[in-house]
Design a protein around this nucleic acid. Structure first.
Length: 896
RNA sequence: GGUCGCUUAGCUCAGUUGGUUAGAGCGUCACAUUGACAUUGUGAAGGCCGGUGGUUCGAGUCCACUAGUGACCACCA
C-alpha cells in the first residue's frame, strides 16, 4: 500500500460519497442484510416537519445511529425507521407567521381547504430538506420506509384506533372547562401550557348582601370574570363567615342574586377567605359549580371578548373590560383595596398568548375506562419491567405521572391536522353522531343524506402516540417482524408529551408495549449552560458544524461526557477536540497503511505474535473489546467511546505504534487496526468507513462483523508477555521523567540495578531487560548507554527511580551534565535539589500509603471480614511498598 | 406544596454489584519537534469527591439529615 495519503483528514471531501455508497448498497434496508440472527428495530421519533434540524435532533440521531450500527454489525436484522410529524398546532403557528410575514395574508383569507393544502406542501418541502440534514449526520435509516403522520395508510390505522376506542367506551364528548388559546383558537391539553410568574394586582371587591347593608369582600386577580359569577364560596370551617352561608348576594354591575355557599376547597388564608365562583372561566370554580349545581354563565368568548351575557361590557376585550369594571366599581365605592402580587399566568406553549379557561364542547379520552384503563395498563407494564428505561429513575417519574393523569382532551379547533371521523346528520343533530372512517351514504337513524363532518382536528399526540405501530403496520409484514420495537430514543422533554402516550396508545391498539428499551437524552445546552434559542442567537447549526469539523467530530462531541437523561453542553471547542481525535485516528491508519504489505487482519495465529509488545497489545485490544461489548449491552455508549478513545490514543498510538517503528509486525498492526475500526464505526462511521475503503475496496465496514473478544487464546499464558511489557513501559516512563523528558539530548547513561527485585528470577529479569534494550533506548528516552547490574550500590550524581523493586539510575552521558547540576529553562536550578524534593515527596507518599495498609493488616476485623483476594492484594502491595521505601530512603541519604 | 436531578481539578464532565494512592477533555506551566499526526509528542502543577451524621473491616459510591442549585408537576380566587 504505497498511496500518498493527505496528512490531514478532510471530512468534506469524503462524507457525501461514503453516505451515497451506504445508501446504494441497500444495507439500510433490513431485508438486504445476510445471515441475520435476531431483530433490531428503532422507530425514530419523527421531528416536526416545519423547520430544520438543531443540535438536539443531531444528538438524538447520533445515539440512535450508534445503537443501530452496533446491532447491524452484530448480525441483527436492523431497521431504523425514519419519519416526520405534521405537528398540528406548532406547524399551524409557524405557517401562519410565514403567511403573514411573507405574503401578507392569513389562513382565514385562504380558507380551510387551501390552508390545509398549502400547509401540507410546506411540510413536504421542509421534510425533504430535513431528510438531507439527517443524511449528513450519517443516520443509517431505511429511507424507503420513511413515513409521514398524515400518509393515508399511517393515518388510517391511527383513526381506526379512535373508532375502536369509541366502541369500547373510551371516548366521550362533552362541555367541559378547557384551556383555550384565543390566538390559536383552540383548546389545549394541560401539557401544552406554560406557566409564567407575572406581576399583577389582587383586587378586593365588596359584594353587597341581599336585604342588608353589609358586604362580603372577595379577592380576585381577574375582576372581569365577576360578570359570570354564580356564587361566593367560603370554607365550611371559616368562623368569620359561618352566619352568612345560605344568604344571598347582589352581584354588582350585573345585579344578579347569587348564593353564598361553603366548600372545602376554599383556602381560608388566601385573600379574604371568601371567593367568587365563576364556573365557566376557572377550572376549580367549574368543579365547585358542578358539585353545587351552579349556573354556568359564559361571559368571555373564544376571541377573549365579553359576550352578550356580560351586559354593559359586551364586546369589550378582556383587558378593556377589566379596566372599565375597576373604574365602575370605584365609582360605586365597591373596590375596597388593590394589592400588588405576583401570580402565575398560564400561556400557550406555542404562541405564548394568555390562556382563557372557558367551557366548550370537546372530545375526551377516558384514561381510566372500565373496559380498558389506559393509565392502569401503562403502569402495570412499566412496573412489570416490560420496558427498560434509561435512566432508571425516570421509571418512577413516569409512573407517578400516569397515576395523576386526567382525561385527555384530544380535540383541537385548528385546521392543520386530521379531522375527526365523526359525522352529523342534519335531521338528527349533534347528539346522535356517527363514527366512521368514510363518509356514510346515509344517516343510520333517519336515512337522511345530508351529513357533515365534525370540524375538530386531532391533538398531534393522538397520532404520534401511535407512531411505532402505525408505521410498522403500513409496510408489508413489518409489524409481525419488528413489533415490539427494540429501542426508543427520545428527549427527556418528551417524557410526558410523547413517551407516555406511546405506551398507553400502543398497549391499547396492539396489546403490547411499543418498545423494549426507552432511552432518554438530555437537553443540549450551550457552553454556559443556556438553552439554545433563536432569540439568544447562541445556536450551533449542525450543518455548519459538520461542514467545519466533520460529522464524526460532531457525533462524538454530542455523546461524550454525557449520561442518559442528563443535560450536556456543546461548544465549538468541544467539537474541535473530537475533530482532532478523528485526525489522530486518520494518522494512525495512515502510518499503518504506509507499512509494506499492510493488510487488515481479522484473525491472527500464535506465530504472528512475536514480541512481548505484541502479546501486550493483543491482550489489551481483546480486553478493550470485551469492555466495549459490556458497555454497549448496558447502553453506556459514552463510557464505551471513552474507553475506546483511551485505548486508541494512549495505548495503541502512543505505545504500540511507537514500538512498531522499532520492531515491525504488520500482522499484529493489521489485527489491532481491524478491531479498532470496527469498534469505532458506530461512533464515527465516516472516517472509519473511509479508512476501511482504502484497504478493502469490496466490502463495507458498515456490515462487517462486530469483533468478539478472543480471550487471549493466542497468547502463551506462561510467557507473561503483557506483564513484562508493562514493566518496560514503567521503566521507560521513569527514565523520561528522570530528566529532560522526551528529549534526545542530552544523552543519558542509565544503570538498571536488579539486585533487590523480587518479581522474577534474576536471570529472567536480566534476560528481559537485555532483550528489550532496544525499546528502552529508542522510545524517546534519550538513553545512550544502558547498563544492567546487580550490585545494590547507590550511584551518586545520578537521578534515581524505583520501579517495582528495580533501581534505575539516570546519569548524564555527555559533558552538559557536569556534577549533576545543569540548566533548565531560564533559571539555574539544581537537578539534585529537584531530585531530593521529589524523593522526599515520594517517600512521604509511600509512607502514608503504607500506614494505611498496615492499619488494615493489623485490624482484626478487617482480616476476618474482608475477602481473601483483597487481603492478599493488600499484602502484596505492602511487600512491594516496603521494599520501595527502603530503596528510596537509601537513595535520599546518598543524595544528601 | 410535591417529585426528581445535580454538587468530584481553574472550566466542562465521567466514575453501575462499596475495594489498593479518584479519572478524562479543555485550560495552565515546562520541554521537544526532518518522525503517521504542530489538529503532534513528553512531563508537571492542580482534589479533605458541598456539609454533618450513620451503616461497613472499608464509602465519591449505600442510608439519614442539611446547604446550595436546577428541572418538572400541582396550586395560585
Amino acid at each position: 500500500m504505497e498511496k500518498e495519503l493527505p496528512k490531514i483528514y478532510d471530512p468534506k471531501a469524503v462524507e457525501d460519497k461514503i453516505y451515497k455508497r451506504w445508501e446504494e448498497s441497500g444495507f439500510f434496508q433490513p431485508e438486504n442484510l445476510k445471515d441475520t440472527k435476531g431483530v433490531y428495530c428503532d422507530v425514530l421519533p419523527p421531528p416536526n416537519s416545519n423547520g430544520e434540524l438543531h443540535v438536539g435532533h443531531a444528538s438524538g440521531y447520533t445515539v440512535m445511529d450508534i445503537f443501530g450500527r452496533y446491532n447491524r454489525m452484530n448480525n441483527k436484522k436492523t431497521l431504523l425507521l425514519p419519519g416526520k410529524d405534521h405537528a398540528g398546532i406548532q406547524t399551524q403557528v409557524v405557517f401562519e407567521k410565514i403567511l403573514e410575514n411573507e405574503r401578507g395574508t392569513s389562513r382565514h383569507e385562504l380558507g380551510r381547504e387551501k390552508f390545509y393544502k398549502e400547509s401540507y406542501d410546506f411540510c413536504i418541502d421542509r421534510a425533504n430538506y430535513m431528510r438531507s440534514q439527517e443524511k449528513k449526520i450519517g443516520l443509517s435509516a431505511d429511507w424507503s420506509r420513511e413515513k409521514f403522520t398524515l400518509d393515508p395508510d399511517v393515518l388510517k390505522i391511527a383513526l381506526e384506533t379512535f373508532v375502536k376506542m369509541e366502541k369500547d367506551g373510551l371516548i366521550y364528548k362533552g362541555k367541559r372547562i378547557v384551556n383555550w388559546c384565543p390566538r390559536c383558537a383552540t383548546a389545549l391539553a394541560d401539557v401544552e401550557l406554560l406557566h409564567k410568574e407575572t406581576p399583577g394586582k389582587l383586587f378586593y371587591i365588596k359584594y353587597p348582601l341581599e336585604n342588608s347593608p353589609e358586604f362580603v369582600t372577595v379577592a380576585t386577580t381577574r375582576p372581569e370574570t365577576m360578570l359570570g359569577d354564580s356564587a361566593v364560596a367560603v370554607n365550611p370551617e371559616d368562623e368569620r363567615y359561618e352566619s352568612l352561608v345560605g344568604k344571598n348576594i347582589i352581584l354588582p354591575l350585573q345585579n344578579r342574586i347569587i348564593p353564598i355557599i361553603k366548600d372545602r376547597r376554599v383556602d381560608k388564608i388566601f385573600g379574604t377567605g371568601a371567593v367568587k365562583i365563576t364556573p365557566t372561566h376557572d377550572p376549580l370554580d367549574w368543579q365547585i359549580g358542578k358539585d353545587h349545581n351552579l349556573e354556568e354563565i359564559q361571559v368571555i368568548d373564544e376571541k377573549a371578548t365579553i359576550t352578550d351575557l356580560g351586559g354593559a361590557y359586551a364586546g369589550l376585550s378582556v383587558s378593556e373590560a377589566r379596566e372599565q369594571i375597576i373604574k365602575d366599581l370605584e365609582k360605586l365605592n365597591l373596590l375596597e383595596k388593590t394589592e400588588d402580587m405576583t401570580h402565575s399566568v398560564t400561556i400557550c406553549e406555542r404562541c405564548k398568548t394568555v390562556i382563557e379557561p372557558l367551557t366548550s364542547d370537546q372530545w375526551f379520552i377516558n384514561v381510566d375506562a372500565e373496559k380498558f384503563s389506559l393509565k392502569k395498563k401503562a403502569i402495570a407494564a412499566i412496573e412489570k419491567g416490560e420496558i427498560e428505561i434509561f435512566p432508571e429513575n425516570f421509571k418512577k417519574i413516569l409512573i407517578s405521572w400516569f397515576e395523576n393523569l386526567h382525561d385527555w382532551c384530544i380535540s383541537r379547533q385548528i385546521w392543520w391536522g386530521p379531522q375527526f371521523p365523526v359525522w352529523y346528520c342534519k335531521n338528527c343533530g349533534e347528539e346522535k353522531y356517527i363514527v366512521s372512517l368514510e363518509k356514510p351514504a346515509q344517516c343510520p337513524h333517519c336515512q337522511g343524506t345530508e351529513l357533515t363532518q365534525d370540524e375538530n382536528t386531532f391533538d398531534t399526540w393522538f397520532t404520534s402516540g401511535q407512531w411505532v405501530h402505525t408505521t410498522l403496520k403500513s409496510h408489508g409484514n413489518d409489524f409481525d417482524t419488528f413489533y415490539p420495537s427494540t429501542m426508543m430514543v427520545t428527549g427527556r422533554d418528551l417524557l410526558f408529551f410523547w413517551a407516555s402516550r406511546m405506551i398507553m396508545m400502543s398497549l391499547y391498539a396492539t396489546g403490547k408495549v411499543p418498545f423494549e428499551n426507552l432511552f432518554f437524552t438530555g437537553l443540549v445546552r450551550d457552553k454556559d449552560g443556556h438553552k439554545f434559542s433563536k432569540s439568544r442567537g447562541n445556536g450551533i447549526d449542525p450543518l455548519l458544524a459538520i461542514n467545519k469539523f466533520g460529522a464524526d467530530a460532531l457525533r462524538m462531541s454530542l455523546i461524550m461526557d454525557s449520561a442518559p437523561g442528563q443535560d450536556s453542553r456543546l461548544s465549538e471547542e468541544k467539537i474541535e477536540t473530537f475533530r482532532n481525535f478523528t485526525n489522530k485516528l486518520w494518522n494512525i491508519s495512515r502510518y499503518c497503511l504506509s507499512q509494506e504489505n499492510f493488510k487488515l487482519e481479522e484473525k491472527i495465529v500464535k506465530k504472528d505474535i512475536k514480541t512481548i509488545t505484541d502479546e501486550w497489545i493483543v491482550q489489551r485490544v481483546d480486553e478493550t473489546n470485551q469492555e466495549i461489548n459490556n458497555l454497549f449491552e448496558t447502553k453506556q455508549i459514552s463510557l464505551a467511546a471513552d474507553t475506546l478513545k483511551a485505548f486508541t490514543w494512549n495505548e495503541f498510538a502512543d505505545w504500540y505504534v511507537e514500538t512498531n517503528k522499532i520492531e515491525k509486525n504488520q500482522k499484529v498492526l493489521g489485527y489491532v487496526l481491524d478491531k479498532i475500526l470496527k469498534m469505532w464505526h458506530p461512533f464515527m462511521p465516516f472516517v472509519t468507513e473511509h479508512i476501511w475503503t482504502l484497504v478493502n475496496e469490496k466490502n463495507l465496514l458498515m456490515i462487517s462483523k462486530w469483533p468478539q473478544h478472543e480471550k487471549y487464546s493466542h497468547i502463551n499464558s506462561s510467557s507473561k508477555g503483557p506483564e513484562k511489557f508493562k514493566l518496560i513501559q514503567e521503566i521507560v516512563t521513569n527514565i523520561r521523567d528522570a530528566s529532560f523528558a522526551g528529549t534526545n539530548k542530552p544523552k543519558k547513561e542509565v544503570t538498571i540495578d536488579i539486585a533487590n527485585q523480587k518479581q522474577y528470577e534474576n536471570t529472567e529479569m536480566e534476560k528481559l531487560l537485555k532483550e528489550q534494550e532496544h525499546l528502552i533506548k529508542n522510545l524517546r528516552t534519550g538513553v545512550e548507554t544502558l547498563k544492567i547490574v546487580s550490585t545494590g550500590k547507590i550511584i551518586k550524581d545520578a537521578m534515581h527511580r524505583v520501579v517495582r523493586d528495580i533501581n534505575i539510575y539516570v546519569a548524564p552521558a555527555t559533558g552538559d551534565f557536569t556534577g549533576g547540576t545543569f540548566q533548565i529553562a531560564d533559571g539555574i536550578v539544581s537537578q539534585k535539589v529537584i531530585d531530593i524534593v521529589k524523593a522526599e515527596k515520594e517517600i512521604a507518599n509511600v509512607e502514608k500509603y503504607l500506614a494505611g495498609l498496615n492499619a488494615r493488616l493489623e485490624n482484626k476485623e478487617f482480616m476476618s471480614k474482608a475477602s481473601k483476594d483483597f487481603i492478599s492484594k493488600i499484602e502484596k502491595s505492602k511487600r512491594h511498598n516496603d521494599a520501595k521505601l527502603v530503596e528510596l530512603k537509601k537513595h535520599l541519604s546518598s543524595l544528601k
